[in-house]
Write a protein that binds this DNA or RNA. Structure first.
Lengths: 214, 214, 214, 214
DNA sequence: GATGAATGAGCCTTCATTCAT
DNA sequence: AATGAATGAAGGCTCATTCAT
């Protein structure tokens, strides 16, 4: 539905559905599930209030559809990563790919943060389908990688949370960080800076990792 | 919690007011300003819906009072730091003090994150009264401190955002991180881990800083 | 209660009760029974919201007390008139006395008008205890007095309603009439004008009445 | 009632809007702006509470719309009168036309009276758009017409207030006058009586007016 | 496929009223 | 006698949702 099927002109219905999802993402990202007014989504999408209900049965299901649409590519990345060779280089690539996806959907991070903070019903999905697939293999790797580093032992999983925050938080907290850097954190330039920052940090944290990133 | 004025028994009204603020902090932290139902705050505080309005003139003013109450000690910390000697040791102390305050008010981080994400009206206060006083002197220090390190130039301000995220985010994203570490991130033990993690990271990022932290 | 018992200093309670009635008259006159907020009466009287309830059991009973207090002297006038010699002179005196009382309680007319317009529960009292005692004998007189005048027949009772309106309406509609006469209709001067107007009108309507007014 | 636009079937929305206005007129006429409960209007109109708000943005704007709708034809009458030849005949016609309009909207007088008594926000409109256009030319005429009559001087403007009261008050005070005449004052018969009464009174007050009314 | 119109439920807020002090 | 504090019950208004067209 979201990803247009190549070589086929999307029907009017598909087009409308897409517009609604797009609008919903923007509005939900700002006001959360409870705080969002259906009316605002409809207005943003340029459709009638009622039209929305021929595409999604309720506000909360629309919300879930929005989350699903944004999160799935992330999950796919993770799964791919966890199945392949998990060296520093791959980790770097994962960060790069993640930042790229997030910068294309700047509202996704906010949506996810809101869902986490409000302990929404999608939180478990996030955990079980996205975080754990990333985490479970990573923890094994980390145990090894952090051996004889300052991060060994209990600090190891915090490495994961650190990078989760540095990537997602960069977008979610953009309204505040804008003040810090006096520029738009979601701009191409600053996304690049943040990506570089993260990779540099990764290198510095694991200076003896077998394979270095370019 | 209730900042009792030494030597004076709080009146019934003061007690009720405090209960309301306490309850409001919990509920706002989960649902944000718009998503919160006054009824839920009243129920949590164990008072009638209407009682609330003899203490605060409106939902949004209650929200602001909650934020103000939580943020002010943070601001005081920052101001103190920015006026004193700003070496690595002081930075470490600032982190420690901040983490301590946040762990005593575990909902504060969520409140602030929600305010940032939804670009609430308190955001500007946050920026002007809290972040800038921290930032403006810090940027000067950082320019110097990051010279000939990987963080020099544009990456320098990202050092600030990183530590903001690692402290506040640790609490705000606790519902998700609980899954990662299989324990409560806001527990005394894990707050200590995270604090240690941050300080270790600080040391590693600036290995040549004149004064090391213990 | 209202009329102080001569030679006795009113107790504090009597004084408070009086202040409440005074305030209630003002506020009810403006907003009517339903539109009036108890709070506004209490504030006007300078007492606590709750104090009011130690004097009157409910808003509507306070309202009735206010009406009763204002209307009773009018009723007494009427009864006296209807029992005495009912000539033109007496009618003139009745008008004068009525206007005098109304000018001393400028809110009374508004209270009564509101009660009539909203068909309040006191309306029947007004009719049975005040209007009918005036009307029933008057109609007999009028039948005689209007004989061979333009007012005979069905128009006769309208003579009564006319003078009711010219007296009460002068005060009740003062906010509008102020615009007409560019002065305060309830001022001593204009009350005198209106009284004179009514008596002149009465004379003109019944030029052959046996006894003329001075 | 519903001022149908000739040759066009009113849409459902127009029909509903009209029903709401009609109902609002009835309820506001009894309870005034503050005393009226939106719910009662909705019930009277046979629509849902919320429907009302898709037609009028607030209770007070609905109130104003009701007043405006009722008052405008009166204003038009006045303006026409004040621009034409203003002799006794025209004055009589004005009274007749006014009484006709008022008898078709029997609640209008009550609405206006309530607005005057409670010094509502529409009072100034009433004065500036309705009363003054009538009054300003009339006062000039009256100065002339009352010369060497009992009404000359200060009593002249009271002639205007008298006829205002005799027309509007007849309807506004109907609930009380019903008791006096033992019949419905707003019935066709009694409106005719009152009209005749007023015109007779006018003639009697100005017996030497150049042109007599039929 | 889209929308204008309608509505039940709920929200924020206020009100009349009560009670303990 | 008076009041600060509390509350159940509305009151005005909005919202998510439905339905007829």
């Amino acid at each position: 539905m979201v990803e247009k099927i190549e070589g086929r002109i999307p029907t009017r219905a598909e087009f409308t559905r897409e517009r609604i999802l797009e609008a919903a993402e923007i509005v939900f990202a700002r006001h959360g599930l409870n705080g969002t007014r259906i009316r605002e989504i409809a207005d943003t999408a340029g459709v009638n209030n009622a039209t929305l209900y021929s595409y999604f049965p309720s506000k909360s299901e629309l919300h879930e559809a929005v989350l699903e649409r944004g999160v799935r590519p992330l999950i796919d990345n993770m799964v791919e990563f966890s199945r392949g060779v998990r060296d520093m280089k791959a980790a770097g690539e994962l960060l790069r790919a993640g930042m790229k996806h997030l910068s294309e959907r700047p509202n996704l991070s906010r949506l996810i943060y809101l869902e986490i903070i409000s302990e929404g019903s999608y939180l478990e999905e996030l955990s079980s389908r996205w975080l754990r697939p990333l985490l479970d293999p990573a923890l094994v790797d980390l145990k090894e990688a952090t051996a004889s580093t300052p991060w060994e032992g209990n600090l190891a999983p915090l490495v994961v949370t650190t990078f989760v925050q540095l990537s997602f938080g960069h977008f979610a907290l953009a309204p505040l960080f804008r003040e810090v850097i006096d520029a738009d954190p979601t701009s191409e330039e600053w996304v690049a800076h943040q990506t570089k920052f993260m990779i540099t940090l990764l290198e510095q944290m694991f200076p003896n990792a077998p394979e270095q990133l370019a």
